[in-house]
Amino acid sequence: MRRRQVFTGPCPARSEASALWGLAAAGMLPGRSMSDAGSPRQTFELWLRRARTRRQLGVLGDRELRDVGLDRAAAAREANKPFWMA
């Protein structure tokens, strides 16, 4: 029997949408390098966004992953990357 997932945070649909937007904002798009981050504060904020969105990517369902063009394996690879890697 499949266990039901209990969400204690914000609405799941809302967090999934923010995860998708967060991928773009966290610099996970081709052509973005660390030198684009700028100041140490901007670098730190970039790393926080990456860590947060990678955690959120790990909880997306198959349907949401298909919506962004990822399969489960690609999502797992991205979610397991350290926050400092683009």
Rank of each mutant, 00 (worst) to 15 (best):
R49V: 02
Q56N: 11
Q42M: 09
L29M: 10
A75P: 07
A76F: 10
F7C: 13
A76Y: 14
T53P: 01
L29K: 03
Q5R: 08
D36R: 12
L48R: 06
T8G: 15
R52F: 02
A79T: 14
F7G: 10
D71W: 02
R32V: 06
P82S: 12
L57E: 05
A75S: 08
M1P: 13
R77Y: 08
V6M: 13
E45P: 00
M34A: 04
S33L: 14
A51E: 15
Q42L: 11
G31Y: 03
A76E: 11
W21P: 01
R52T: 03
R77H: 11
A17M: 04
R66S: 10
A86M: 14
V59I: 13
A37I: 02
F44Y: 07
D36G: 07
A74K: 12
G27I: 01
A51Y: 11
R52K: 14
L70Y: 00
N80T: 15
R63K: 02
G22F: 00
V59L: 12
L46N: 01
T8L: 13
A76R: 14
E78H: 09
P12L: 11
L23V: 04
L48E: 10
D62I: 01
A17D: 07
K81D: 14
P10T: 11
A51I: 10
L60S: 04
T8M: 10
E16T: 11
P30M: 02
P40Q: 15
R63D: 02
M85F: 06
S33T: 15
N80S: 09
W47H: 05
R2P: 09
L46F: 09
A19F: 01
V59E: 03
L23G: 00
L60I: 05
L48P: 01
V59M: 15
K81Q: 09
R3S: 06
R32E: 08
S15D: 07
R63M: 03
S18A: 07
E78W: 12
